[in-house]
Design a protein around this nucleic acid. Structure first.
Lengths: 209, 209
DNA sequence: TAGATTGTTAATCGATTAACAATC
DNA sequence: TAGATTGTTAATCGATTAACAATC
């Protein structure tokens, strides 16, 4: 067995992209693909594609290329998508409600098991087939449903305390939509979606070319 | 005047983060900050922070540091936030509607001037103070309101044609939420928010430490 | 003046790309 | 076998970090 070096963040971030393209290829009935083919489709360099797969041991056959389905399944396994991740949404505003409906539609192995807020006017409302509950019930929900991920969609000024709270309840990953920086630590990993930051970058790019 | 090298994407992506932190400092009444202070707050290396500002000419004073307000204003200007960007939302599903409400709340100089769909059941509904309109009206809206940005929140299978359409209407930047890769070209810049990709990365990180 | 901190160049580090032997 | 394409090492490139002279 091959010595396991730490896989860089850059490589990880490309995996979902491969995954999507391979799914498309399968749907088109294509069973075989070379790094050069994938390069044309994804816009990535073929050497880079081979390097990426090589990180995990290499899934191809010399002189042939890659078998689409088995490559798809390998990446699926690496990303942990062969099991379901349960998640809760903390903050039932616009964004939280939209995610509660959006995630199940994508059918990618992520299940929303609860959505929480403190605002009494929201409590009890149904979003899809789940009900907005008071944040007091969050800990219970996490423990009963084996929840790994908390999506944080609260206003910025509550975000830090909400993050501390879900960490205390034993959450392993935070999908953060609030405009604050959260520090990773050995117990919790963070993925930030800074929507407005992204809009600002877009604005910059528009203005500068 | 200093020779202008192309600013790297990595630098641009850090600017909104600085912007946010400087805004916080202003709100706290702090008028002066050093790269070392900023480093502690942002988690970035102080050399990197100075390098980043140096790209744009350097905004500090040796022996003193940076004046919070003037640094804030410089970054504001670089990001083009001293003017308003008008944007339209293409796709009035969960995500599109949520963005239509979310963006104005953030008060960062982005104005939603229209939201469009093809689904007749959605047409006419009010989201905040704007009405969902048929996609046929999109071109007209873009021309009348000097629209720079289109947020793409349509289902994946319509995304490519929707992108081509807004490009044809003269849009300068696409904020893409669909799970496809769009190619930049000299006329159009792209910012992708691949929500599910980000969830997958979070899943990977959770499973691997 | 002495101390602090930037502006700026140089060194380091890591990620991307190129090259090619291995091998199907 | 000849052709194709990977696995794998080496070279290149760019981004991050370190160092320190300039200067407030």
């Amino acid at each position: 067995m091959k010595y396991e070096r730490k896989i860089s963040e850059a490589v990880i971030k490309r995996l979902p992209r491969y995954y999507r393209f391979l799914e498309d290829l399968m749907n088109m009935g294509i069973s075989r693909v070379s790094s050069k083919d994938l390069s044309v489709r994804t816009g990535l360099n073929p050497s880079q594609i081979r390097q990426d797969f090589y990180c995990f041991g290499g899934f191809g056959l010399q002189g042939y290329g890659y078998d689409v389905e088995s490559l798809f399944n390998e990446i699926k396994k690496i990303l942990g998508l062969d099991t379901t991740y349960n998640l809760v949404i903390v903050g039932a505003g616009n964004l939280g409600q939209a995610l509660a409906k959006h995630i199940p539609q994508q059918k990618k192995g992520f299940k929303v098991v609860g959505i929480f807020d403190v605002k009494s006017s929201l409590l009890g409302a149904k979003i899809g087939d789940i009900e907005i509950m008071h944040i007091d019930k969050l800990g219970e929900c996490i423990r009963e449903n084996n929840v790994d991920i908390a999506a944080l969609t609260v206003p910025g000024n509550y975000a830090r305390e909400a993050a501390e709270m879900v960490i205390k309840q034993g959450i392993k990953g935070i999908w953060n939509f609030a405009p604050i920086e959260l520090k990773e630590n050995p117990d919790v990993v963070i993925e930030n979606i800074h929507l407005i930051d992204s809009l600002m970058v877009l604005g910059y790019k528009i203005s500068n070319k």
